[in-house]
Nucleic acid binder design. Structure first.
Length: 505
RNA sequence: GCCCCUAUCGUCCAGCCUGGUCCAGGACAUCGGCCUUUCAAGCCGAAAACACGGGUUCAAAUCCCGUUGGGGGUACCA
């Protein structure tokens, strides 16, 4: 193949770990792995105003959860650390000085207010906004004076306005932007922290990154980066801009219109391998019509030629289908483990048991002595065959299996209980008959229960489906449930008879 | 506004580079049927798209130009 690619994913710890970060991590990971290169995680925490305490830890955890381990990063180290930009300020300062010295950058003493006014005026005159170059030609004496006065300043890139900057995007081909369209970007803020542009270029170079794979939103600032590489006398990496994930309305994916947190997907019972597969379907195709491929498969036939450029709408419906596919592909033992793990995870993160989502499962498990309890494990394991084709996320397990985990069903809906064309009294009589017959069973297992109920149906001249509906609602509390006879066996003789009696009253 | 990216079913992707095999193929969702103790799952089937206009060519979803649409950028945020 090609040369080993050193790639990186460089999120900012400004909130929940984002699906977009997962998306970029996936492709960076594939590029590095399939070329025998390295994959780096770098934390871009240069904006102290947006920094969020827990974010970095969650980012690292989420990337690992997805199964995309990085070779270098804040918590694993590496030869070119530190991997947290806030710990590299000396490096940026030194590089800023280099640029100041070689004339590719200059000090700008303009205040935020002046810049604000300037932009206002530009907009009013329908001029493209951008720094007007006031400080660009400041004489050395003037600079010394300002410095002596202690006026705060920033470092700006001195963009050559009279030429065109060109770079090749690996996905889109040649991109050209006229120098006059490029703003004299701030590289070093007055607080001593670098902006993205400076830090990014310096770090990518120092960390030996040779292919920058990032989101499309960066494409217009790439010329600034190209100029920076030139200013330092460095070889620029290759650039590959991936399309942006979109909301239904095609705008850049956002929290308001989609769950964007990787944590959300984990907490709601999505399997990491399904999410990775789904992300792998965005702007990428496998070698054939097959859309179900896990990471190892994706790596096995990964080809950058099949990456595309148009922004995919993030369709959570399709993710749900894929998740269901992965759930169904699991062995019953594995699925039982995943379910247990999921509810253990929900307990660990302190999620309040949610009746609609968790059902009574969490509480029941707790009462039975915790997740490690063998009886609990065995019981959950027994339910798996009944629900495996019926859940799309692990989260759906709780509500679906509610009837197995509680003692009192609560009030039944007569609309559901009574079959069409029959009345309440007849239904109650039928349930009493069913109860009597079932009670007489010597062996309380699935085939016996089924045979017994069919007998009852014939005796009272009800169609099987009518009787089964009434019994289903009486025993499970709902007209929609896992298979009836198996469920009755699982619920057990005692509780089943109680429920039939209660409904028949 | 200006700059950049982009354009095939509602959605995700094939096909486009190397024009004809495309009255456009697969998947999700939708609808219908089968199976069936409900719901699922599974199986079968239906409906559903080349943004528009000019070229080039015997022939264009495929090549060229333009228009329109969508997105992104335009910060001492990343």
């Amino acid at each position: 193949m090609s040369e080993p690619l050193i790639t990186r994913v460089a999120p900012s710890p400004t909130g929940d770990p984002h699906v977009g970060t997962g998306y970029m991590a996936l492709f960076n990971y594939c590029l590095a792995r399939t070329t025998g290169g390295r994959f780096i995680l770098r934390i871009e925490d240069t904006d102290q105003t947006r920094y969020q305490e827990d974010s970095e830890r969650q980012i690292m955890e989420s990337i690992r959860w997805l199964g995309l381990p990085y070779d270098e990063g804040p918590d694993v180290g590496g030869p070119n650390g530190p991997y947290r930009q806030s710990e590299r300020t000396d490096i940026y300062r030194a590089h800023m000085q280099t640029l100041l010295d070689n004339g590719n950058a200059y000090r700008c003493f303009c205040s935020a207010e002046r810049l604000e006014e300037m932009r206002h005026a530009q907009r009013a005159r329908k001029m493209p906004p951008g720094y007007d170059g006031l400080c660009r030609g400041l004489l050395p004496e003037a600079i010394e004076a300002k410095l002596a006065e202690g006026v705060p300043y920033v470092g700006r890139l001195r963009v050559p306005k009279d030429r065109t900057v060109t770079f090749v995007d690996e996905l889109r081909g040649k991109v050209e932007i006229a120098g006059k369209e490029i703003d004299d970007q701030v590289l070093m803020k007055s607080d001593g922290f670098p902006t993205y542009h400076l830090a990014n270029v310096v770090d990518d170079h120092l960390m030996e990154v040779n292919e920058v794979v990032r989101a499309e939103e960066w494409i217009t600032s790439t010329p600034k980066h190209v100029l920076l590489y030139e200013a330092f006398g460095w070889k620029a990496p290759r650039f590959r801009h991936m399309p942006l994930l979109r909301n239904q309305d095609k705008s850049k994916i956002s929290k308001r219109k989609n769950p964007t947190s990787l944590l959300w997907y984990r907490d709601h019972g999505y399997l990491p391998e399904a999410l990775v597969n789904f992300l792998g379907l965005m702007g990428y195709t496998g070698p054939d019509d097959n859309e179900i491929f896990d990471l190892p498969q994706m790596l096995a036939d990964f080809d950058t030629k099949r990456m595309s450029t148009s922004g995919p709408v993030f369709d959570i419906e399709k993710l749900g289908w894929l998740n269901g596919e992965y759930i169904r592909a699991l062995s019953e033992d594995d699925l039982a483990d995943r379910i247990l793990e999921h509810y253990a995870h929900r307990a660990r993160i302190g999620a309040e048991p949610d009746a609609a989502r968790d059902g009574p499962l969490q509480r029941w498990i707790f009462e039975q002595g915790g997740f490690g309890n063998d009886q609990v494990r065995a019981f959950v394991r027994e339910t798996v065959p009944l629900i495996q084709t019926r859940i799309k996320t692990l989260d759906e397990y709780g509500p679906l299996t509610r009837c197995y985990f509680i003692d009192e069903l609560g009030p039944l809906d007569p609309e559901e209980l009574v079959p069409k064309k029959r009345d309440l009294d007849a239904t109650k009589a039928a349930l009493v008959a069913a109860r009597e017959r079932v009670e007489a069973l010597m062996i309380f297992d699935t085939p016996s229960i089924e045979a017994a109920l069919r007998e009852v149906g014939e005796a009272i001249e009800w169609k099987p489906r009518e009787l089964f509906q009434a019994v289903r609602v009486a025993v499970t509390g709902s007209a929609v449930s896992p298979p009836l006879f198996e469920s009755m066996a699982l619920i057990g003789r005692e509780r089943t008879l109680e429920r039939l009696a209660a409904a028949g009253n």
